[in-house]
Nucleic acid binder design. Sequence first.
DNA 1: CTCTTTAGTATCCATTTGGAACCTACTGTT
DNA 2: AACAGTAGGTTCCAAATGGATACTAAAGAG
Lengths: 128, 128
Amino acid sequence: MDTKEKISHSDKKVPDDSRCPMTDFINIVSGKWAIPTLYRLIITDDIIRFGSLQRGIGGITQKELTKQLRTFESLGIVSRQEYPEMPPRVEYRITELGKTLKPTLDSLAQWMTEHRDELLANSRNNAS
Amino acid sequence: MDTKEKISHSDKKVPDDSRCPMTDFINIVSGKWAIPTLYRLIITDDIIRFGSLQRGIGGITQKELTKQLRTFESLGIVSRQEYPEMPPRVEYRITELGKTLKPTLDSLAQWMTEHRDELLANSRNNAS
DNA sequence: CTCTTTAGTATCCATTTGGAACCTACTGTT
DNA sequence: AACAGTAGGTTCCAAATGGATACTAAAGAG
């Protein structure tokens, strides 16, 4: 079958800005360890070393924490200060840009907190 | 090496409610087609049939749309009305619960819109 | 001389996610 | 008789994600 996109008569057009800000936002904070890492950095609100961050998050491997921190760093959400010592010392810190995420993340949390019971009730009913 | 979790002296304790509302929220709206699907349903704000929804989203396969709709349905975010006709007819619609997501999603979009330029500038600088 | 510490890399492997292409059922149309 | 249209289900496959483990460098402690 061909994959021609047939637009039916009843399909209403909708403004389609292909770079969707919601999707872009979700891409930043999705991934198994993004929120735990970000949360730790935000509530610490101070320099924190790699090892301490890893223990604070709990369960994250070095590989994943490094990858997540690199991502956040490239976005300017966290800063990274490396000291040329041995054993190595690297200090991470949430940036001002990173801190601006807090109110938005709080609103996510608030929605979830407000609707958790309803969601659970629905899930139970539909799990026939 | 053993995997004992050694808590160092400098690790400040943080309230660790293991069911994190932020993570739970993100789990609902992550996945490649969650936001596009939800967005279509919210702005339509009316009944919409499977095929029309699929064409409206654009690029999503039947399999993925079905899976996403089942997920939303089980959470009570969308409703599904099936008519025993041939050819089949199924009408989807955003629920009242689903609509309450809009302000929160708007706040995501707003953060992204406000900070997109800064994020892009950071990415370019760090892409050495 | 060996062990420990730190912040990573590198490898391998298992799981998850998502896309392409097929199939169905029943009716209406040509 | 063949084909289109709808809302999926099913199978196979490729890519992305994530976990476990081993390895590194250089200094200090015992």
